[in-house]
Nucleic acid binder design. Sequence first.
DNA 1: TTTATTGCAAACCTTTTGCACCAGG
DNA 2: CCTGGTGCAAAAGGTTTGCAATAAA
Lengths: 184, 184
Amino acid sequence: MATRAKPKDDRYRLPAAAERRSRKLAEERFGRYLSEHDLKLTPERREILQEFYRIHEHIEADELMFHLRRAGVRVSRATIYRTLDLLVQAGLARRISLGKDHSYYEHILGREAHEHMVCLGCDRIIEWLDAELTRLVFRNCAEQSFSPARHSLQVFGYCQDCSKTSEAHKALELGEDANLSSGD
Amino acid sequence: MATRAKPKDDRYRLPAAAERRSRKLAEERFGRYLSEHDLKLTPERREILQEFYRIHEHIEADELMFHLRRAGVRVSRATIYRTLDLLVQAGLARRISLGKDHSYYEHILGREAHEHMVCLGCDRIIEWLDAELTRLVFRNCAEQSFSPARHSLQVFGYCQDCSKTSEAHKALELGEDANLSSGD
DNA sequence: TTTATTGCAAACCTTTTGCACCAGG
DNA sequence: CCTGGTGCAAAAGGTTTGCAATAAA
């Protein structure tokens, strides 16, 4: 009941109206952020932002560049990185790492915070959300006098499809008695 | 009550006996893993393992190399990486990313699973543990038919010392009204 | 003796940066 | 106009890899 899985095929789909709304809002916000910081809203930045907000999942910088290129927009890799960084600064994007050797970015507007399950078998990523868990995170922060800005939880394991093969994997990876704890 | 903070100064200390025990156990396990896979227990691997298990916090590969060098052991960077990788394969180490552009490693034996709070102000890292949270993670996995192998939760924010300055930071980073959600 | 391992340096990959030219505000 | 932005290519860093020499088993 706390968890909210989305159906497999449109996991990252958003109602068209909501998407348009969030793209518009994002551009307004970005524009505001830029002018407040004496920065400029260039065509490149606008294109990147729009494309980025059309993608409702985590994406890597290069992938975003290819999306743009496919849409006929040519922007240099450097500009992609620079703009993504600005979007993070502006609070419109989040940079996350999912165990790979590079970063992913995901937009924030119009999406709830969520956690990830990363399948070690097929690389599939399941997004999920648990309000109770979020509450616990905040409670722990409070107990440590820590002011949380954001958090990121990844579970690595095997999805349903892959878990048939996972038995063997787990045995290999963990040895036969991995659950020992120190006794003091 | 669910949270268990360790005092600041010996956060990563382990009773000497427990440490010795875990180092011994680790070497046994590693030896077993190696021979099962027709790999060899070289002096380098033994030294790396022993030093690694003397460090009770997350460490980066280079740092481990310096520790070894300081202890008079010279091993090449390549061997460090290769061995750390083996340790991960063997289920004796965990590779984690903490928002930096490189990986950290931490050993597993003799330490309970734990989460991290990363201070964006001073880079200090607070380790914490909440059994209830762990339970929730498992519950969510079950609901998604996902078999978890391990998980990793990082909270980014500001520690007590830094949170005085954090107000300004947050205002800058998030804009004045970052908490909006889509109404789908 | 056979097969894996080591160290070194070069290769890799993602991300960042210096610079000359260009363009928002 | 002035100040920042863009593309390019080179530079950075962390991590991986090919290879010849070396050493476990």
